[in-house]
Design a protein around this nucleic acid. Structure first.
Lengths: 194, 194, 194, 194
DNA sequence: GATGAATGAGTTTTCATTCAT
DNA sequence: CATGAATGAAAACTCATTCAT
């Protein structure tokens, strides 16, 4: 514990600084020196923890994506029904996007920008598996439309990113009512109408 | 007349080069010199047409956004029914996002990034009015859910951006069938179920 | 008169613009395009009248220096006594420096800066001859100290440049009284005390 | 301790390089790259010590002005008589202007040019106080003419700048004799004739 | 492990000058 | 004679990265 003395605190401070600065200014408008300053370390110290700037942002991306999925699935159990499971996951994701604003903004920027390299992008996607499994089950049970997972994601999950964004730009306020409306819209777009 | 008037061709070449390079590398990773080279002009020439890099990208954004909305509403008529009107607009938007890939990618990056300044962002939003009017009519007629326009946009229009993106990254192919499915998902998420 | 149609007006406008802009910003901080704009001509037009930027400023210098000496000696006559002659010249010079502020500031900058090339500098000095002649006469008559003309200039004429400068920077106001004091100081520093 | 502290040597080398190059070419004709080269550092290094080019020249100005006044008053004591004090200060100033040519030329350029910003200009003036005090004493004692300090400066001190300049341009040589003549001219222009 | 000084390579932007009309 | 568009060359400045300590 004393041997590999690389302080996890410094590493984390660097990651959090990266998120905040990239959110405010964009990746390439964020100098390493500024990240170092906000994390209260020397610029040179960054290179003890990360190979280079690209590596720093890649790793930050993977880490934030992990937090996102960990949060999303924390209360979900595979024993839940499809409806219940979807609602549980959806509401956790909504929670995350509306409360962990910095993380959510960061992901939105990474996902719509060439700033992350392909391997990291792929790495980040992995963790959504439980949702895909749930949808597979739902399709098998005739509850979820038998369409591409990407379509399901586009219509049931991705809109939350847009709502998070416009809320953050001050255009709307997402309260409990809007959230319920959003959930109904999400659910009705992927469930099979009987 | 061809040589000594500030040529609209050069201006346009610069805008197209900006779109392509920003799509590939991101705003700040795109040097003015590269834009100039791709547009076959000297770097100094850019400054005859645009005040600075920020101005260039702002104007490019507004121009692309205009093309987008112009395309979206070209075949729509206010005399159409709500259902028909929405379908017409939606399909034009889908068309644009799937065919005018460069433009669509550029808008996605601008909209999820701090690269555009606020005034330009606001300028870009203006042109969606016909869709908002249609929705207002739909709400009055009891056809469209009486929820915030942002929610309607999030669920019926914005998913197309996500689909465009994943198609471009090679994850899926959006054919006629997927498009129809997408439209059904969009419509079912905003129409009132009777 | 119609043949060599180079308009003297344009040439003069360019020279006046040069004086004003160089006074405000310095030679190298004054772009040709700005000079052209202030003179209401195209940048290319400057090159019809002057070889290049250095030539423009050299010629401007010589022209302003000529105005200065022409003004200085306009009312002086060689028939005047040494005392009278000096007073007449000194007061004309003072007049010029305090009233033709732009010209005087321009000369101060040229004379204390490497912006003028040597040939033009020498050319500009030529026209002071009548003053040197007067001093020679004064020395011969035992009225003026038998010291270098440069010393005489340094103590009797050059202080006016300093006074002009500080008045222009708002530090003092040179009224009739100060002027008389200045003249007495000038005269007492070069005349022989008996 | 030599290598990793921001080295005062580098800062000083930059200041000296600035003086020399500005003297030769003028402020705006002196590129940062040339200053860096002469100081044997990278252009980027300049920005570790100075905010920008204007800051570099402002600070150089203040520093040179300080050297000037420090030198001027080094041997002066307030216990000296007015005559003696003035002679001491005057000769130190003459010494400085004729020996520290680079510094003196630099000040002449700064003082006759818009290259220094107003705050720095004011900062540079501060240090002349002992001379002003001496003059106040001289006026009280009926030894010095009761005229503006600017006039006293214009006639007793400023001529040295002109003499330094023309000597440097090779027009004259200021030897001991000329210096004595100059001093007499200076003194006779400000002392009260009895 | 941690640092701050240092820098080479690159960025945006400017500008004196030219040239086709 | 006059022009405005165009540009190559160079300016100020930045920044990811390294290195001696």
């Amino acid at each position: 514990m004393a041997a590999l003395q690389k302080s996890i605190d410094k590493r984390n401070a660097l990651i959090e600084a990266t998120i905040e600065l990239v959110n405010n200014d964009g990746f390439h408008a964020t100098p390493m020196s500024k990240i170092a300053k906000m994390a209260n370390v020397s610029p040179a110290t960054i290179y003890l923890y990360f190979d280079n700037k690209q590596d720093l942002v890649n790793i930050t991306y993977i880490e934030v994506k992990s937090r996102y999925t960990a949060y999303a699935f924390e209360t979900y159990r595979e024993t839940m029904s499809v409806e219940e499971g979807f609602e549980v996951i959806w509401k956790r994701i909504a929670d995350f996007k509306l409360k962990e604003v910095a993380d959510a903004m960061f992901l939105a920027q990474c996902d719509n920008t060439p700033m992350i390299d392909e391997p990291s992008r792929r790495e980040g996607i992995k963790h959504l598996q439980p949702l895909l499994d749930l949808w597979a089950r739902g399709k098998a049970e005739g509850i979820i439309k038998p369409i591409s997972d990407y379509l399901l994601y586009a219509y049931s999950i991705n809109p939350l990113s847009f709502l998070m964004l416009v809320e953050n730009r001050g255009a709307i306020k997402i309260g409990p009512q809007e959230l319920e409306e959003a959930f109904q819209a999400a659910w009705s777009s992927i469930k099979i109408n009987r």
